[in-house]
Write a protein that binds this DNA or RNA. Structure first.
Lengths: 183, 183
DNA sequence: CGCTGTCTTCAGAAATTTGTGAAGTTAAGG
DNA sequence: CCTTAACTTCACAAATTTCTGAAGACAGCG
């Protein structure tokens, strides 16, 4: 049985009676898994590491919006090490947060439904780096050369984009508060 | 000599007298190369294939905004096969266009300074696919389950984003026409 | 303080991606 | 049509990434 991974020396037991998730009506595990994998695949296409994508998709579709390492490992059929690596990455880019479970030394990884696309659009740091590189490019080509001009235009576009993205996210926050609960 | 690649059976000659690019004041090849490599590195970070990124960066910083396969191969020190692959990818995603050189059977790869970030932001098709997947996710989770709700919110965000991006690019076109030439 | 459950790190196996050489394919020019 | 420059494709080697198993570190509990 088990078919999955366990931790350290001894095979952990007592995992069996998961499956009774709180508010769930009737989750079809297969259908959920299909979704998780296809959403993950798209994230991979978009450049995310495979395991991080799978973990993220699993969290996003979980009812509680949070899962333990063990649950992730079992659901995705991967080793604890893989989960650990994926979670490290995801929390570095602020797509999930980690929280200790009160009663136990278990940790629980959570995706706040809003936090994550904030992270996606808050490429601020990234954009800044691009801009810096482009500025260097303009300098070394000379602002008057045709190449330099082209780079300057690209730079201007990124600066524009940066400002717009901020405003855009503000508008979304309003829209979101209006449509979904106002938390 | 040559230090680079050549085509097929015989080593081509007569490449030597490039370097007299039309409108260039005094391009420092080393400085340009540094820029190309660091810009490419950032594109790679963002998920682009390495060679495609290098080719693209080289084109962007070239004075004419266009280079032949041979020029790319020499500047980047890679084989014709590598250039071919990179260009195939780049034109698939509309980041460069290919044009035949009139007098010769050479081809010339061009980046239109605007076309490329249009391509970046016109992830329309991509967004549509994401939305489709998310919709399927909402369905299989049930729109009333907590998980389903979270997915629905994500979906709404993408739909919002799609509309906003379109408007955003329109604003940029105006801004660009104002700042740079009006072509 | 020692046990034990949980997470992390690390070295290496496996899979994937990338770029090359060589053998096509295509079409311009004689 | 034949030649040949220019581009493409393909099989494979090299580099890189990704995951695992095993050993380690850390904390809560007794």
């Amino acid at each position: 049985m088990n078919g999955g991974y366990s931790w350290g020396r001894r095979a952990t037991r007592g995992d069996e009676l998961r499956m009774a998730e709180p508010g769930a009506a009737g989750r079809d595990p297969e259908a959920v898994s299909r979704f998780v994998e296809s959403f993950a695949a798209q994230l991979v296409d978009a450049g995310m590491q495979r395991m991080a994508a799978r973990v993220f998709a699993a969290l996003l579709s979980s009812d509680a919006g949070a899962l333990t390492s063990a649950e992730l490992g079992e659901q995705l059929q991967v080793s604890p090490a893989a989960v650990s690596g994926a979670v490290r990455y995801l929390s570095q880019v602020h797509m999930v947060s980690r929280e200790r479970e009160p009663g136990s030394r278990r940790e629980r990884y959570r995706v706040h439904s809003d936090q994550w696309y904030e992270a996606i659009t808050n490429r601020d740091a990234v954009l800044k780096r691009w801009e810096q590189t482009l500025r260097a490019g303009v300098d070394s080509l000379g602002a008057e050369s045709p190449g330099g001009r082209r780079m300057a235009e690209t730079l201007a576009f990124f600066e524009f984009l940066e400002g717009e993205l901020t405003k855009l996210m503000e508008r979304w926050r309003v829209e979101r508060a209006r449509t979904f609960g106002g938390a």
